[in-house]
Simulated scan of single mutants.
Amino acid sequence: MSEPTQALVAAGVRAVIGAHTQAQDAGRTDDIVALYASGGVLELPGMDPVVGHDALREAFKGWAPTLPQLHLVGNTVVTATGEDEAGAVSDVAFFQRGETGWAVQVVGRYEDTFVRGGDGTWLLKHRVTAFQA
């Protein structure tokens, strides 16, 4: 794969990760679901996998923020596995604002798999979330 193609893959994947994070923190469930492939999978520790748009919509509705929150995602390493597939590993810190201010609630890692949709946009195929603290 050429260097310009890898750069475009990385930019597309990072854009999906950023859009997911901002939509999740704002409670925009439909925007989150639109970032997943039709059979998209989300895995969280201690839960059965969430599979498909309907299940993802229900899950994210249930997780809509009740307090101001912020996911800080960084140290993202993108690996293009082909013209239409890529992987990414990112560190994440989740903050919530309460009566005493902002506090870290959890630190973790996302391991993501992406596919390119028919219109050329990148979509999440599979996200595995691991909590570290």
Rank of each mutant, 00 (worst) to 15 (best):
E85G: 09
V77E: 01
N75P: 06
V16M: 10
T76H: 00
V92Q: 07
G98V: 05
G74N: 09
H20K: 06
F60G: 01
E85Y: 07
T100G: 12
T113S: 04
V50P: 15
T79Q: 10
L35W: 02
I17W: 00
R28L: 13
E43G: 06
P65F: 12
T79E: 10
V115W: 07
G118Q: 10
H126C: 10
A133P: 01
P4L: 07
A59Q: 13
T76G: 04
T66G: 15
T129R: 04
T81I: 08
A23E: 05
M47I: 06
D54P: 05
R14M: 05
G98N: 04
P49E: 01
D91P: 06
G46W: 02
S38N: 04
D30C: 10
G98M: 10
G74F: 11
D54W: 02
A80L: 02
Q105G: 15
G39C: 08
T129F: 00
D31I: 06
G27S: 10
E83G: 11
E3G: 06
D119V: 11
D30I: 04
P45N: 09
V115I: 15
I32E: 05
V50M: 14
L44E: 03
A88K: 05
L56A: 06
I32S: 03
V77K: 07
Q69E: 15
W102L: 13
A103F: 08
P65N: 15
L35P: 06
V106R: 00
S90I: 03
D25L: 09
R97M: 12
P65E: 13
L56V: 03
Q22C: 03
A19I: 07
D91L: 10
G108Y: 01
D84E: 05
G117H: 10
D84F: 08
D84M: 07
A59K: 13
M47D: 14
E3V: 15
A80F: 00
D54N: 11
A130L: 04
I32D: 00
T129H: 02
A130K: 07
V50L: 15
Y36N: 04
S90G: 06
G12V: 14
A86E: 02
T81F: 02
R109H: 09
W102V: 14
V78F: 02
V77T: 03
G18Y: 09
V73Y: 14
T5N: 14
G118F: 04
G40V: 14
A23Q: 04
W122S: 02
V16L: 12
G46E: 06
Q24G: 05
G120H: 04
A59L: 14
G46Q: 11
R127V: 06
R57H: 11
V33E: 12
W63N: 05
R97Q: 13
P45D: 09
A37E: 05
Q22K: 03
A23D: 03
V104Q: 00
T66H: 10
A93C: 11
T81A: 05
Q96M: 07
G12W: 12
A10F: 01
